[in-house]
Structures are given as C-alpha cells and as structure tokens.
C-alpha cells in the first residue's frame, strides 16, 4: 500500500515545493510578515503607558490579534491567488499534462501553502513569545520589589497557540481552495472566502442559539443547524491569551478538541475540492 503510494507522495512533495517557492517569493508574503511583526513590536510602546497588571494581557491580545488577522488575510488571498494564477497563466496545463492527477495537484498546492503559513505563524509567534517573556521577567522582578503578586506566563502556551493558529489557517486554506475550485474569478473567490471565514468565526453563535430552540421557528432552526454543520467553529482556536497567561483557565482537552474537529473539516473540504476540481476546464 505504502509502496504504491510513494510515487504519488513524491509528486505531491515536488508540487508543494514549487508552490512554496512561488509563495515565499511574492511581495505579498513579505509585506504581511513585516506588517504582522510591526504590530507585535509596536506593543512594546505600551510599557510606557503603565498598564500595570494588565500589560502582558494587552501585549498578548495585540500580538495574537495581529497573527490572527494577517494570517487570515494571507491564507485567503494567497490560496486563491496561487490557484487562479496557475490556471490563468496556463502553467497548470503544463503540470496536469504530466502524470499528475488533479487530486495530487490540489494536495501539492495545499501542502505548499500550509508550510508557508507555518513559517508565518512560527516567525510571528517566536517574536511575540520573546517579547512577552522579556516583559514578564521585568514584571516579576518589579513585583518582588513591591511585594505584589507576579503575573503568570507560559512560553509553552504561546507555542500551543501557534500550533492551533497554524491548524486554523489550514482549515481556512482548505475552505478557500474548495471555493476557488468552484469560483470563476479570483475576486469572487476572495469575497466569498472572506465571508465564510467571518461566518466560521461566528459559528459558535449559531451553535449557542441551537441550544435555545424555544426562541426559534423550525425553519431558522434547520437553517442554523445546517450552517453550523457546514462550517467549522474557527473561534475555538483563538484561546491564545488563556494558553499563555492563564493556563488554568483552559478547559482540559480544548486544544486537542479544536485540532480534531478542525482536522475533520480540513480533510472534508480537501476531499470536496478535489471532486469539484476534476470537472474544471483548464
């Protein structure tokens, strides 16, 4: 089984490498990583504002927010752009005339993009982790001098959050890939992609509403139920400040639950994308 899959995996690997090279050479990637880094670093200014105990929380919120926001934009635009560029420039024609199946082509694209996003998340999280850790050390010393309670901080939490965000961006990428295989134009894919990301971010609202069925008529109940099944709950990945600053507040199993349900949607979206891509005229 594994042996017969080896050539296929190799092809996916080479396609992923090609996608990775293409993506990291784009100015857009460099631009967003610089913007994200600037946002993380700018929270450095807050130390002069004397937030006292809330300062770490402020830095963390700002940094995680930047990672979340620019990461989402990168995943959305880069995924749609790379797929449409490949089709519009007819480079896909050359690749698909090789013994490369369309599923392998899509999986290669996905893997290449996901690795780029991993790089993005890793660089920004490391930067944020270093900043938080440095400020935390200062605050601990300060607290000792003034005999106050020192704030809590977990560097490990920053990296668990990085892993979660990387997974979240993987789910977003597979979602945008699916939309891009159906959409005719880049713009349409980006607009619909952005709307689905926002909807995924708000999906927990639909889930909560479902717990109070008394307030719903059957039709909206059915609609909400469908929407909450079609879309992943993207909000469950955003527990960065809790993971980093107050690990005791994180419910046990929250990280693995998010990864498990995210992984389910990721695989389902990729599967559907490969089905719709089979019929697409190149």
């Amino acid at each position: 089984m594994l042996k017969s899959m080896k050539p296929s995996l190799l092809r996916i690997f080479w396609l992923a490498r090609l996608t990775f090279l293409e993506a990291v050479r784009q100015r857009f990637f460099a631009f967003l990583i610089v913007l994200g880094a600037a946002m993380v670093l700018s929270s450095f200014a807050f130390r002069f504002l004397d937030f006292g105990h809330g300062e770490l929380k402020f830095i963390a919120d700002f940094g995680f927010g930047g990672l979340f926001f620019f990461g989402s934009i990168l995943a959305l635009v880069m995924t749609a752009q790379l797929l449409f560029a490949e089709i519009d420039n007819r480079t896909a024609l050359t690749l698909l005339a090789k013994p490369v199946s369309r599923t392998e082509f899509l999986l290669g694209k996905f893997a290449g993009i996901w690795i780029v996003l991993g790089l993005f998340v890793f660089v920004l999280s490391t930067l944020l982790g270093v900043m938080l850790w440095g400020r935390w050390q200062e605050l601990v010393i300060l607290a000792e001098q003034t005999a106050k309670v020192a704030p809590q901080f977990s560097l490990e939490g920053v990296f668990s959050h990085a892993l979660l965000q990387w997974f979240r961006l993987g789910v977003v990428t597979s979602m945008v890939l699916l939309i891009s295989t159906i959409a005719r134009t880049f713009l349409f894919a980006v607009v619909v992609g952005a709307m689905t990301i926002v909807a995924g971010q708000l999906q927990w609202l639909a889930q909560e509403a479902l717990f109070k069925p008394a307030e719903l008529n059957p039709f909206s109940h059915a609609l909400l139920w469908l929407a909450s099944r079609l879309l992943p709950n993207l909000q469950q990945f955003n527990i960065g400040d809790a993971l980093a600053l107050d690990p005791s507040a994180v419910a046990t199993g929250a990280v693995s639950a998010a990864i498990l349900s995210g992984g389910f949607y990721l695989i389902a979206y990729l599967f559907l994308a490969s089905l719709t891509f089979q019929r697409r005229e190149i």
Partner: peptide, 17 residues
C-alpha cells in the same frame, strides 16, 4: 501521460524558475 509529452500553445511557465 507517462508516455506522452505536451507543449501547450503559447506556453508559459513558472517564471521564477
């Protein structure tokens, strides 16, 4: 496809390679 080679019309390739 393994046994076939194809040159598309007005070919265009990944230009950064």
């Amino acid at each position: 496809r393994q046994r076939t080679g194809f040159l598309p019309e007005a070919p265009y390739f990944h230009k950064f390679l």
